[in-house]
Design a protein around this nucleic acid. Structure first.
Lengths: 353, 353
DNA sequence: AACACGTGATAATACGCTTTATCAATTGAT
DNA sequence: ATCAATTGATAAAGCGTATTATCACGTGTT
């Protein structure tokens, strides 16, 4: 154990030891000995042996610079990934992302350096796009900044969003869940057992994925031959539906409800308790997604499940395809089906009209 | 929207637009205008304006090469990080790692490209150390390969292990939980309520962290003035203790048991069921760690909690300190206290001797 | 007029590797 | 003996930025 800090060997060291030029060494070590380039096996062996003896390891940074790519896929979340509040949200995506990255031989770069203190994260710091460190990036997050995404597009940086995202004037790549179809299917399930007046309870937000659910709601009703009554589409504040709101719906003849999120479903169940309603006897309930975090005690809600893991994996695949393409202009979208969850909260309405 | 792929601006473009050399542009953009270097404010403004107008973003890869470091901290796990089986194990570490990295302004590089198919991961692929991509790395994993770690040390690559690791001939840096102290304390708690014969149930493994617990077991007994009877230290196969084994212990007068892991505790509880034993009436049970995965239904086990999040965070801090040091030879260790968990599975033994 | 000195900036080199066009030497064909 | 084709390998030019020693120039001093 020497007290000196021994420089790690460079390509040129390997080359010298093998008695060849650095070009030759590079070609051999990278298996680029094809076509116009010819190095006899014997020389190749010398190079490989030299590399082995010196314990040579190519500097990935230098390789990146020279090659123009570095085998890194960025993962950017607009909120911290790991804190427990987001745990059940991001986790399944990450499982899929990791699996696909592993399969394709990419490493993942998690951007954690760009916090701005309020829990949000920024892509641009000091006007610099930190994402450039990676060949391309997967973006995920609920509260993304459209401005920053716009800037990314302008830069021509390759990225794929997890979740549908629309941006005026430009098409961006994403892997989404087909909420519209899944919601329509859920509605049809309700209609099939006899429901005619089905309410929609959502949040006062207008993200793409919520708009998709609302479209699916209307489409499902229409497809089933039900009247679409927009007064049954109820957006409540703070992800909470309160008993009076529910009562209003019931007064309008509602016998079934679809809910936009776990928290909303949870508050709905509480409201049902307050109103002494039996589920699904007095009211059928559907959840347009998965139970969330601590809300798992809502029981076996009927509805559908978001293919989060698959979405993550597909995003990685899509991104690498994007990277292989010479023209980064071509954006692509993928839409994955949700899995219906039978559950136990849908039943025929008590009073058949 | 042009159909052409517009090259992103480089430093030289900014320089030309501002009518200066690339050196000047670099100096201005990096706030290196001190001492020997003098650029009048007016010129600086021109450079900044040019950068702004072009939307210039420095290429981090080129910066890394030039500077010799790149602000990346590697995270290497010897098994896949995210799969559900490891979920509750790695997750808290990652929370801490992310938090610390965010605080210190580092990005995290997750090495997912080095799978060898059997679920294990290797640091070296084709003899190359992929970790070099990052300035330093956090290593975590249950089944690490001593050979690879040894090679890392030889290379002089800076890393910090999460969990104590000993390697013959060289000292390595780690952040560990003080299992010995926590286990001793747990034993003392049991002795304090009257237990004299306390068994230890563990796995047939000999990792550092398990050895620490076993040392703590003996130390705790000795400190409490109890006899240390090694026939009560029982290592069972497959992380499962079966009823007959438990019966044997009981026959030896055991009134309390400490268990090494969630799965073992779980199997112990099953064995208790089979033997119609009441906990903690007939037998007190302690868990030397946290419930694991699906095992959370074991109830409120008494024992202690591993400061996983804190360990992750401290590992990051330690690593950055290592990176700041000029001589990478100095390895450092940290030991964090575990938090006692009162629980409800320790009670005085039924028959006081 | 000769000199020292501060000012404003840059040329040049390094970082470690990839890649392509090129070339000398050898072999084979006529 | 001459020319063409093949073989074996390399020189050189990037990739985009950071850094430092150096330099030309003007200004004030003696």
């Amino acid at each position: 154990m020497s007290a000196f800090h021994i420089r790690r060997p460079r390509l040129i060291d390997v080359a010298q030891r093998a008695g060849v030029s650095s070009a030759t060494a590079s070609l051999v070590l990278n298996n680029r000995v094809t076509g116009n380039v010819r190095i006899p096996p014997e020389t190749q062996q010398r190079v490989l042996a030299a590399a082995e003896e010196l314990g040579y390891v190519a500097d990935p940074v230098a390789q990146s610079l020279a090659r123009g790519r570095n085998g890194l896929l960025g993962v950017f979340t607009f909120e911290a990934i790991f804190p427990v509040t987001h745990r059940d949200f991001y986790y399944p995506f990450l499982v899929g992302i990791e699996r696909a990255a592993e399969m394709l031989g990419f490493d993942l770069l998690l951007f954690t350096s760009t916090s701005v203190g309020d829990g949000r994260r920024r892509i641009y710091r000091d006007g610099r796009n930190r994402l450039r460190l990676a060949d391309g990036a997967i973006l995920l997050g609920v509260e993304e900044s459209k401005t920053e995404v716009q800037a990314l597009v302008q830069e021509g940086y390759p990225f794929v969003f997890v979740g549908r995202r629309e941006l005026e004037g430009c098409e961006i790549s994403y892997v989404a869940a087909d909420y519209a179809a899944a919601t329509a299917e859920l509605i049809e399930r309700m209609v099939n057992v006899g429901h005619l007046r089905i309410a929609y309870v959502g949040a006062e937000q207008f993200t793409e994925s919520l708009l998709d659910r609302r479209r699916g709601y209307r489409d499902g009703l229409a497809a089933s031959g039900c009247a679409v009554d927009d007064s049954l589409l109820c957006l409540c504040t703070g992800q909470r539906m309160v008993a009076p709101q529910l009562q209003t719906l019931l007064d309008q003849g509602v016998t079934a409800v679809v809910t936009e999120s776990g928290p909303i479903a949870y508050s709905l169940l509480q409201a049902c308790n307050e109103l002494m309603l039996d589920i699904p006897g007095d009211l059928s309930v559907g959840l347009m997604g998965d139970p969330f975090g601590d809300m798992e005690n809502v029981g076996h809600l009927s509805g559908f499940s978001i293919p989060r893991e698959e979405m993550g994996a597909q995003a990685v695949h899509l991104l690498t395809r994007l990277l292989d393409t010479k023209t980064p202009a071509t954006s692509q979208q993928a839409s994955l089906p949700c899995k219906p969850v039978a559950g136990s909260t849908i039943a025929p309405p008590r009073t058949r009209p």
